[in-house]
């Protein structure tokens, strides 16, 4: 088998194994209701994780997305409260802002040759600060458009509900897969992760691609902010602290190399579901502290980093022995 698919296979195997363990203990967990909730509860995380996958494959990192979600929620709720606008034009405005915000970070990273870590760290503080400026308090959203979206769902066989936001996450994942694997932009993202200098020599438009990657991540963070505001019916500047780290964890557990150049959007979906599954298990159990989620995620992350390192080592050795045999 192509060694590129190995981390993805490991992720899928872990998911199936984890689900089997859950099912053995709580047979009720294998139902479309649980799966539907899994999608709904992790929709906002899944959407930013798609953007994060692109960023990490390109060899970068985006620490700003959690703060952008909080900013988005506050922005939407404050604008809806203070103006009579319909949510849809507000969404459009917000997406424009967060996309430009991401593009600006990408431009800074490329043109000032700054590490993505520093630039997006600054972006993280900036977005969080802007949320505070708009409102310190939690602002509730009471718009009939919101209630109608929240009550909209598709009833899956087995009485499970695929909500609007859960469905939106799946649509984003499918779109992400198409962009990553079936467009020149997608290949260019992988090319950047393989080596910026070489990519440049091979004719990849490095500046345009870098800016587009962070703009995409900004757009998806805005979209995730909309989803989060639908999920919670409020905007709060202290919300989603540290969610960017959850997204990075989901991407890595999904089999993407933190060093860039290799990974799959589909893997990230499984990564998000694994994290959601652990949470669900703890809820079913009822006696465990929710901090166990963090502990298990930490252990999984560690296992994946070791797996990736081992894989790189293994492919390197494999090739040398193949060459020696020739």
């Amino acid at each position: 088998m192509n060694s590129r698919f190995l981390p993805l296979a490991a992720t899928v195997a872990i998911f199936i194994l984890a689900y089997a363990v859950c099912y053995a203990q709580f047979p009720a967990m294998l139902s479309t209701r649980v799966i539907g909730n899994l999608f709904t509860d992790n929709a906002f995380l899944g959407i930013i994780a798609v953007g994060m996958t692109f960023v990490i494959i390109s060899g970068g990192i985006d620490l700003s997305v959690g703060s952008v979600i909080a900013f988005s929620g506050v922005f939407i709720s404050v604008v809806l409260r203070d103006t009579g606008l319909h949510p849809i034009p507000v969404f459009a405005m917000l997406l424009l802002i967060t996309t430009l915000f991401g593009a600006a970070m990408g431009a800074t990273i490329h043109f000032l040759e700054m590490p993505a870590f520093i630039v997006t760290l600054a972006g993280m503080f900036l977005a969080r600060g802007m949320a505070y400026v708009l409102s310190i308090d939690s602002v509730p959203i009471n718009h009939e458009f919101y209630s109608s979206i929240q009550s909209f769902y598709w009833l899956m066989p087995g009485k499970g509900r695929l909500t609007f936001i859960g469905g939106l996450m799946l649509v984003v994942f499918v779109a992400g897969m198409l962009v990553a694997h079936r467009t020149r932009f997608g290949t260019n993202v992988y090319a950047l992760g393989g080596g910026t200098h070489t990519a440049q020599l091979m004719g990849v438009p490095v500046a345009r691609t870098t800016i587009a990657i962070y703009a995409l991540s900004g757009f998806l963070a805005g979209l995730s902010g909309i989803v989060f505001s639908i999920y919670t019916s409020a905007g709060y500047s202290l919300a989603t602290v540290g969610v960017e780290l959850d997204a990075i964890a989901a991407v890595v557990i999904g089999g993407t190399l933190l060093t860039g150049g290799s990974g799959f959007i589909a893997g990230t979906l499984i990564g998000v579901l694994i994290m959601g599954l652990i949470q669900t298990y703890i809820i079913f159990d009822g006696t465990l502290s929710s901090w166990w989620t963090k502990i298990v995620v930490g252990m999984l992350l560690f296992a994946f980093i070791v797996l990736q390192k081992g894989l790189v080592w293994f492919t390197g050795r494999n090739r040398t022995s193949a060459e020696a045999a020739r």
């Binding site: 992988y190 090319a191 992760g193 393989g194 070489t198 091979m202 150049g261």
Partner: peptide, 8 residues
């Protein structure tokens, strides 16, 4: 030193 991308 081959100027191609090993990960593609």
């Amino acid at each position: 030193e081959v100027n191609l991308l090993p990960n593609l």
